[in-house]
Design a protein around this nucleic acid. Structure first.
Length: 637
RNA sequence: GCCGCUGUAGCUCAGUGGUAGAGCGCCUCACUUGUAAUGAGGGGGUCAUCGGUUCGAAUCCGAUCAGCGGCUCCA
C-alpha cells in the first residue's frame, strides 16, 4: 500500500500502481486534466508506485490550460497528418492564448485547408481516443522518423541525449513529446483555428520556411465564444483603429512606410506629454538639449553603431566631403555635449535629456501603426556619473518611472533584465569583463530595490545590459515602454573623463534611459490603455459647448472665452443640429465634458454639464464647472 | 526582409467578366431644436498602381506599392 496526500491535507491509502485518474475520480475531481505529483506534472494515466503528494489541475489553472492546449496542438498535428500524409511536423507548443504547430507541406495552407483541418479536428476529438504515453529507445525513434522522412523531428531528436524518448499516441498518431498530456482527446470540445503564417524553422531566417497554424480550444463552446468576443473587444481598442477614428495620427502612402503624421488632435496630446515629461525632468536635475537629425558617419564609427547597428540605419548620403546619416540614436550627440567642458567629480552626475528625433530603418514587415515606426521621438536622456553613483541614479530613474506610471495609471507591466548573449559575437562587443561588470552592477541595483524581474539572454544593446519595462498592446503583443541601460563601453570609446578628487582623470559610467518611450509608442499605448477615452488632462478637447439654438451662440462664445482664458481646450459645436445629435457626436468623439447652453443657462450664467462617463450632471455656474475640471486636470484623474 | 491574406467614395462595406452601389460623413435648403442620429436635395470613385488575357476587366493573370496576421527584429 502507498499513501497519497491531497492538497486538502487528507491522506488516502492505495494499492501500488494505482492510476492518478483513479485518485482524481475518488477525490471527485472530474475536471482534472493533469496531476502534479510531488510538484511535478504527470499524466492522469500515469501510475503511482510510492507515497506521494498529489494535486489535480483543471483548465482554470495556467498549467492545466497549458497541457490542454499542448494536447490540442497534437490533435491539430494528427488532423493535418490525416489530411496531408506527406506533411513534415516541426514543433507544436502551447502559448499564452492557445497553441500552434509548425508544419511543412511544401506549400502554405490555404483558408480552405484550415477549414478542413478544423473540421477534422472536431471529428477526431469526438472519437474521444485515449492518449497514451510510450517510451521507446532512441535508436528506434531515429529509425522510425528516418523512414518517415520527418527531418525536423530527427533534428530535435539529435539534441535529446536520453537513451529512451517519450512519445504520445492517440488513435494511431504518434508524436515525440515530453508531455504531459490529457488522458483523452474527447476533453477537447470547442475548437477554433485562428490564423496561419510563415515561420522559420528554429526561428532562423536562413532555414526552412514552415507553415504555422494558430488555434485555440476550450472545454466549452461558451468559453470559446467569450474568448472570441474578447478578441473583438481588443480590436476596438487597437490604436490603429482609434487613432484614425479620433483623428490622432495618419499615414499616407505617398509619404512612405512607417512615417506617421501627427494630426492636430494627436499633436495636442503629444505636446502635453512632452511638456509633462520635460517639466518632471527639469525638476529632477536633467538639462534639456537639442541636437540635429543628421550626423557624420564618423560619429557612429566611434560609438560603434556603424559596426553593430548599421542595418537599422538609413544609408549615408554624401555631401561635399562629408558622409552623413540620419541619427538612429541620441547617445553620441549627448556624449559630444558632455565633452564640451572639462568635468569635475563635483559636477557629476550630468544628466542630459532630449526629446530626440531618430530615424531607424525597421524591416517593413515589422512596422505596426505607431507602435513601431521609422521616424520617432524618444524621451531620451543620458546620465554621466561616477561608478559609485550608478546605483543611486538607477534608483532615481526607477522612482521616476514609478511616479510617471502612477500618473498614467499604468499598473500592468513586467520588468525584463536584458542581458547579452556571449554566443552572439556578431551583435555584442567582445569585452566580457565589461559585460560582467555592467550586468553585475545592474543586478545588484535591482536587488537592492527589491524589484522582481526576469532575465532575458540576448536582449541587451550592443553597448550594455538594460532593464526594460514591458507592457501589453491591445493585440496581445509585448512592447518595451521604459528602459534603463547601463553602459561602460561608450565612455571608453569616446574617451570620456572627469577629474577626480585626486586630480586625475577618471572614466564616467553612462546610463541611457527613456521613461515615456518614444512619443509614437507612448501615444499608441495610451490610446489602447484608455480605449480612446483620454482623461481630461490629456484630452485633445477637454470640453465642448453645445448651444441649443442659434440665439445661444453669443453666450456660447462667452463661455468659451472664459474657459479658454483659463487654458482649457474648448470648442463650440455651432452646427445646425439638434442637441441630441450634438451630444451623440461629442460622445463618439470622446470629449470628456459637454456643456449645454440654452435659455436657462444663458440667463443664469450657467452651463448644463454632461460628463462623457457619467452623463447629465445638471446645470452649474461656469465657475463651478471650472473648479471641477481644474481639479480633475491637476489630479490627472 | 520572409510566408500568407487584403486593397471599391473621407469612413464602414456590398458588388465577381457586360459601361460603379449603400449607410455614415461632407455641401445646400428648410426646421431653431434640451442630453446618443430632424427632413429633403446635392456633390464625390480613371474600383491602390502599372502591365497582360479578352470583343469587353473593379471582377481573370502577373508585377509593384501599401495595409493586416505571423516569423525575424526592436523604443
Amino acid at each position: 500500500m502507498i499513501e497519497v496526500r491531497l492538497p486538502d491535507g487528507s491522506v488516502k491509502k492505495y494499492d501500488v500502481g494505482v492510476s492518478l485518474a483513479q485518485i482524481a475520480q475518488d477525490a471527485g475531481r472530474r475536471d482534472a486534466l493533469v496531476a502534479k505529483v510531488n510538484g511535478e506534472l504527470r499524466d492522469l494515466t500515469a501510475r503511482l508506485d510510492q507515497d506521494a503528494a498529489v494535486e489535480f489541475l483543471a483548465f482554470d489553472d495556467p498549467e492545466g490550460r497549458e497541457v490542454y492546449w499542448h494536447s490540442s496542438a497534437h490533435l491539430l498535428a494528427q488532423a493535418v497528418k490525416d489530411l496531408f500524409p506527406e506533411a513534415k511536423l516541426a514543433i507544436g507548443p502551447p502559448i499564452d492564448e492557445g497553441f500552434y504547430y509548425d508544419i511543412n507541406i511544401g506549400r502554405p495552407f490555404t483558408p480552405e485547408d484550415v477549414e478542413r483541418i478544423e473540421a477534422h479536428m472536431r471529428e477526431l476529438a469526438k472519437r474521444d481516443q485515449p492518449i497514451e504515453r510510450v517510451e521507446i529507445p532512441r535508436e528506434e525513434a531515429i529509425r522510425t522518423y528516418g523512414t518517415m522522412g520527418e527531418k525536423y523531428k530527427l533534428e530535435l531528436l539529435d539534441e535529446i541525449p536520453d537513451a529512451r524518448v517519450s512519445f504520445y499516441r492517440q488513435d494511431g498518431f504518434m508524436d515525440m513529446c515530453r508531455g504531459p498530456h490529457l488522458p483523452r482527446t474527447g476533453l477537447i470540445n470547442a475548437i477554433k483555428l485562428l490564423s496561419t503564417s510563415g515561420a522559420y524553422w528554429r526561428g532562423d531566417e536562413h532555414r526552412d520556411m514552415l507553415s504555422r497554424i494558430y488555434g485555440v480550444t476550450f472545454p466549452s463552446q461558451e468559453q470559446l465564444d467569450e474568448f472570441l468576443q474578447q478578441l473583438e473587444e481588443a480590436k476596438r481598442r487597437d490604436h490603429r483603429r482609434l487613432g484614425k477614428e479620433l483623428k490622432i495620427f495618419a499615414f499616407a502612402q505617398e509619404l512612405g512606410q512607417g512615417l506617421p503624421l501627427w494630426l492636430p488632435r494627436g499633436a495636442t496630446v503629444r505636446r502635453i506629454l512632452e511638456n509633462y515629461i520635460t517639466d518632471l525632468e527639469l525638476q529632477r536635475g536633467y538639462h534639456h538639449v537639442y541636437a540635429p537629425d543628421l550626423a557624420s558617419v564618423e560619429l557612429y564609427k566611434i560609438s560603434g553603431h556603424w559596426d553593430y547597428f548599421r542595418e537599422s540605419m538609413y544609408p549615408p548620403m554624401q555631401v561635399d566631403n562629408e558622409e552623413l546619416v540620419l541619427k538612429p540614436m541620441n547617445c553620441p550627440h549627448h556624449i559630444m555635449i558632455y565633452k564640451q567642458e572639462q568635468r569635475s567629480y563635483r559636477h557629476l552626475p550630468v544628466r542630459i535629456a532630449e526629446l530626440g528625433r531618430m530615424y531607424r530603418y525597421e524591416r517593413s514587415g515589422t512596422l505596426a501603426g505607431l507602435q513601431r515606426v521609422r521616424s520617432m521621438t524618444l524621451n531620451d536622456a543620458h546620465i554621466f556619473c561616477r561608478p559609485d553613483q550608478v546605483k543611486a541614479e538607477f534608483a532615481a530613474v526607477v522612482g521616476l518611472i514609478q511616479d510617471v506610471y502612477r500618473d498614467f495609471h499604468i499598473s500592468d507591466y513586467r520588468l525584463d533584465l536584458s542581458l547579452h548573449d556571449p554566443k552572439d559575437r556578431q551583435y555584442y562587443h567582445q569585452d566580457e569583463e565589461l559585460w560582467k561588470a555592467a550586468e553585475g552592477l545592474l543586478r545588484e541595483a535591482l536587488d537592492e530595490l527589491g524589484l522582481a524581474y526576469h532575465a532575458v539572454i540576448g536582449g541587451a544593446n550592443f553597448y550594455g545590459p538594460k532593464l526594460d519595462v514591458q507592457v501589453h498592446t491591445a493585440t496581445g503583443k509585448v512592447e518595451t515602454l521604459s528602459t534603463i541601460q547601463l553602459d561602460f563601453l561608450l565612455p571608453r570609446r569616446f574617451e570620456l573623463e572627469y577629474i577626480g578628487e585626486d586630480g586625475k582623470a577618471h572614466r564616467p559610467v553612462m546610463i541611457h534611459r527613456a521613461i515615456i518611450s518614444t512619443m509614437e509608442r507612448m501615444m499608441a499605448f495610451l490610446i489602447e490603455n484608455y480605449a480612446g477615452d483620454f482623461p481630461a488632462w490629456l484630452a485633445p478637447e477637454q470640453a465642448r459647448i453645445l448651444p441649443i439654438a442659434d440665439r445661444h451662440l453669443e453666450y456660447a462664445h462667452k463661455v468659451r472665452d472664459r474657459l479658454a482664458g483659463e487654458g482649457l481646450r474648448v470648442e463650440i459645436d455651432d452646427s445646425n443640429e439638434r442637441i441630441s445629435y450634438k451630444v451623440r457626436r461629442g460622445q463618439l468623439e470622446r470629449v470628456p465634458y459637454m456643456l449645454v447652453a440654452g435659455d436657462k443657462e444663458a440667463q443664469s450664467g450657467q452651463v448644463a454639464v454632461r460628463s462623457r462617463s457619467a452623463g447629465d450632471l445638471g446645470a452649474v455656474p461656469i465657475e463651478q464647472f471650472l473648479e471641477r475640471i481644474r481639479h480633475e486636470i491637476t489630479s490627472k484623474a
